[in-house]
């Protein structure tokens, strides 16, 4: 059996809150999970859920109050556990007096690469994230989106086997988001393990093999997309034009609910247990036009809201996710 890349066991983090008489604030409460090699694993949750705290615990930036975490079998307290890990922080800030090329060379050296090898890797990565033309531009001149792309590049500088991305889509325009999605999929195709946190559920839905949903510092749900999301059709939605009173009365008798959008134009919501075909025939027979017909399935957003609603909280002293 393949060893998990990440093993987290009852990981807990309390932050002291208050100056004179600090009280513990539990940012993460007894989180346990495993991430297998080659997985794209999503860590989802609202602000203050404990997502960023989890990632920072894994990278040794924050010390756990209790519990353990291992990466590639090594405790996260050891420097060696980060040798095969790349990390993109949330809203990254880099040394703005350096150029993109210099930053990647420096970070490559911190990962144990020779300067020449780090420079070669850096150049290739800047091309890969679309910053090849700006490689000799000082980072202080980069836009927010360019810094985010640079952040992705630096996370890959030593060709890591595990890539941890904290809100990787943050600050990116639609093209940038598409590029990062493609990059994550290409990393998966190269056999790398990707762990990322996100608020953007559609990205998680298209990218992740498994997700963990956190809220108020606790794990609310964990599993594959097929485990968590019910993909069977729950209902049908039809958009009809030219609906008269007779047809409307007949549709109501089936148990469908209707919303009148404009005179003659209605949106019909038919519970999923009933097939939509008879309605289509009636509509045709009554001279109405079918503008749209679509199935309603449960989405990750539905699952997410089900687990986190009523459990939102804000982390004291922060403005972003924690």
């Amino acid at each position: 059996m393949t060893e998990p890349v990440i093993v987290v066991d009852r990981l807990t983090k309390d932050y002291p809150v208050g100056f004179w008489r600090p009280r513990p604030y539990r940012a993460l409460d007894a989180l346990s999970l495993e991430v297998a090699p080659g997985e794209v694993f999503g860590c989802l949750g609202p602000n203050g859920a404990g997502k960023s705290t989890t990632l920072k615990l894994l990278l040794g930036l924050v010390t756990p109050t209790s519990g353990t975490a291992h990466i590639f079998g090594r405790p996260v307290s050891s420097v060696a556990s980060r040798e095969r890990v790349g990390f993109l922080p949330e809203n990254p800030v880099f040394y703005d007096y350096l150029t993109g090329e210099e930053l990647l060379t420096y970070f490559g050296q911190l990962c144990g690469l020779r300067a020449s090898e780090a420079r070669r890797r850096g150049t290739a990565l800047l091309d890969r994230v679309g910053l090849g033309a700006e490689r000799r531009l000082a980072i202080r001149r980069y836009s927010k989106g360019m810094v985010q792309r640079l952040g992705v590049a630096q996370a890959l500088v030593q060709d890591p086997d595990l890539v941890i991305l904290d809100e990787p889509m943050s600050g990116l325009d639609p093209i940038g988001r598409r590029d990062v999605r493609a990059l994550i999929l290409s990393l998966r195709d190269e056999g790398k393990t990707v762990l990322f946190s996100s608020h953007i559920l559609s990205d998680a839905e298209t990218l992740c093999s498994r997700v963990a949903i956190l809220a108020a510092g606790r794990l609310q749900a964990l599993g594959s997309m097929t485990d968590l999301v019910q993909f069977s059709v729950r209902a049908w939605e039809l958009l009809l034009d030219g609906v008269d009173a007779t047809l409307e009365h007949r549709l109501r008798e089936t148990g469908a609910t209707m919303t009148t959008l404009s005179p003659g134009r209605v949106q019909v919501h038919l519970p999923g247990t009933q097939p939509p075909e008879p309605l289509l025939q009636w509509a045709n027979g009554a001279g109405a036009r079918v503008l749209a017909l679509q199935p309603v399935r449960e989405t990750l957003e539905d699952v997410f809201l089900k687990h986190v609603e009523g459990k939102r909280r804000d982390v004291p002293g922060t403005t972003g996710g924690a």
């Binding site: 920072k56 990278l59 040794g60 930036l61 420097v79 060696a80 980060r82 040798e83 890990v85 990390f87 993109l88 922080p89 809203n91 990254p92 800030v93 880099f94 040394y95 970070f107 911190l110 990962c111 144990g112 952040g151 630096q154």
Partner: peptide, 14 residues
């Protein structure tokens, strides 16, 4: 303060 330390200390440097 600027949080540039996050990316640096996430590298394998003690």
């Amino acid at each position: 303060e600027r949080r540039s330390v996050h990316a640096t200390l996430a590298k394998p440097v003690s």
